[in-house]
Structure formats: C-alpha cells, structure tokens
C-alpha cells in the first residue's frame, strides 16, 4: 500500500465531510468565475446559455472597461468609493474598539447585555428598512429633522435629498449606526478573551486606565484588528450597495458625493442593459481588491508572521 493511499484511507471520513461544502463552493463560486470572460466579449445573444454566450461572442479586448476610465465620472466614483470605504474602515475600527472598551468596563452584566442588544439592533435589519428610516428622518416636507429638530434651533428646513454636501456625513453616520454593533461585539469578544492577570499586574504597578488600554488592550487585540482590516481592504473597491443606493434614494443631485462604483455600474446596467459593462466593472473591483489584499498581507506578514491572513 502506498503512503498516499494509506493517508487517503485514514482520512476518508474527513474528505467525505469536506465534500458537500467544496462541491457547493465549486458550483456557487468557482463555476461562475468562468463568466469573467464576458467582460472581454461583445455578447451576442443569438447563442444562449452560459457557455453559448461565452463561446460564440467576439473578443473585444478592453472595450467594456472603457467607460470606467474614460469619463469624468470615473475619477469621482473611484474617489468616492475609496474615501468612503477608507473612512468606514478607520471610523468603524476606532469607534467599535472604544465602545467595546466602554462595554467591558460595565460591571453589571445584565446592563452590559442590555446595551449590547440595543447597539446590535440596527445590524439586524435590512438596508431596505434603513432606507425607510432615513427617509422618515430626512424627508423634506414631513421628516422628523425638518419638522421637529431644526425648528428647535431656529434653523430653516434643509432639502436633504438635493444638497450633496451633507451626504458624506449622513452616509458615514448611517453606516456607523448600522454596523457598529457588529464590529463592537467582535472586538469586545477579543477584549474579554484577554487574561485578567495582565490588568491586575498593571494596576499594582499603578498604571492608569488609559495606560492599560494603550499598552495591554490594544496590543493584545491587534491580531483581530489586522484580520478585520485586511478583509475590509480586500473589499475596498466594493461598496455596500444597499447603503449607497437605497439610502440616498438614487437622487440625482446627490450623485457627486454619493455615487460609488457599484451604483454607477448598476445605473448603467439599468439604462443600457449591458452585461458586458457590468462584468467588466466586477472584474476590475475584484482584481484591485485581490491585489490590495496580497500587498497588505505581505506587509503585515513581514512585520508579524502570525497576524497575516495566509
């Protein structure tokens, strides 16, 4: 009996366990990846079906990618995508860690659970409903902000859905509101995992709370921060479509500050019905994300092998 065969026999049950999951990933994720060639083709629909579309259509090189780079919008949507996602990564991480530290300070366990529940609440609902919520707040003629909040300060109503300048803040707040609970609990989990002896020793040494946070908590949850950040960087060219599409209600005047690659591509698909263009955009996003992850992972692994993703 050869070694390999022996191994296979020894581990056949484990391979059997892997089978459904791997089969699924092949069908759901790897098979459609063949479709990336659509991005380089001029789709001819007279041959239908996935393979027909791919096989019979003509190669047109990078023509489908042109609209992503040639127009003035390209710069705007790329800038918006990067700035928003960069901002989200920074803000979500810092606020979530801060909040997690706060929650960790709460000594009453019941109260802590209660806060956690409420903070996680927005994470549980779909963006469709978030769109409803924001509209009820910002609606021009009957929204809560214009009807109740602004008059209290004697400020005139604001046409929220036509003033682009407010939206970077609005979207950032909405994103923070929606996702903070999730990130917070991930970091809280890491903090709870830290051995109490560190803090006890530090307290004996007379370290202040702030010093403890800086020299114990943060370094010890650094691996989690790295992993979460790396994953986020991999998706920095994608944006939360629901957030950028549902929440600004696809309002035209807001586009200079709310349009991101995903919404631009989606609108292109709606007006032109061109799958070549949207495939090209998808490919571009995936490729850039992939490269960014490889690069940042490389940098991380140079500094600390254990924190790297792979």
């Amino acid at each position: 009996m050869s070694d390999a065969f022996k191994k296979l026999k020894r581990y056949r049950a484990l391979f059997l366990m892997i089978l459904p999951g791997m089969a699924y990933l092949i069908v759901n994720n790897y098979l459609p990846m063949l479709g990336v060639v659509i991005a380089f083709k001029d789709i001819d629909y007279s041959h239908r079906g996935l393979f027909g579309l791919i096989y019979y259509s003509d190669w047109i090189g990078l023509k489908n990618f042109e609209y992503l780079f040639k127009t003035n919008d390209a710069l705007v949507i790329t800038r918006n995508t990067l700035l928003y996602n960069g901002g989200f990564i920074l803000l979500n991480t810092t606020v979530a860690i801060g909040l997690a530290i706060l929650l960790n300070e709460v000594r009453n366990r019941l109260a802590s659970r209660f806060y956690q529940s409420l903070i996680l609440l927005p994470y549980l609902i779909s963006m469709v409903i978030v769109g409803y919520l924001v509209l009820s707040l910002l609606n021009v003629e009957n929204g809560f902000v214009n009807k109740v909040v602004l008059p209290m300060f004697g400020v005139d109503p604001i046409s929220w859905y036509s003033e682009a300048k407010y939206w970077p803040y609005i979207l950032t707040i909405v994103n923070l509101w929606k996702n903070i609970g999730y990130f917070c609990i991930i970091y809280l989990a890491s903090i709870i995992g830290i051995d109490h002896e560190y803090y006890e020793a530090a307290t004996i040494d007379g370290a202040s709370k702030w010093q403890q946070i800086r020299s114990i908590t943060i370094p010890l949850i650094a691996p989690t921060i790295t992993v979460m950040t790396l994953l986020a960087i991999g998706r920095i060219f994608y944006s939360d479509f629901g957030l950028f599409y549902q929440v600004p209600l696809n309002s035209g005047p807001l586009q200079p500050t709310t349009d991101v690659i995903d919404t631009y591509v989606y609108r292109g698909l709606m007006t032109l019905g061109d799958i070549g263009m949207s495939s090209a955009a998808g490919f571009y996003q995936a490729l850039v994300g992939f490269i960014l992850v490889l690069v940042s992972n490389y940098i991380v692994s140079r500094r600390d092998r254990d924190s790297a993703l792979f």
């Binding site: 069908v27 994720n29 459609p32 063949l34 479709g35 990336v36 994953l231 799958i275 495939s279």
Partner: peptide
Amino acid sequence: TLLFNGGLVPTYLV
C-alpha cells in the same frame, strides 16, 4: 471565494 467572484449574470445562468 472571499476575494473573487464571477458576478451576477454567470451565477444566475449557472
């Protein structure tokens, strides 16, 4: 699979 996907239309066709 976390980093790369085939896009909507190919997935739909599969």
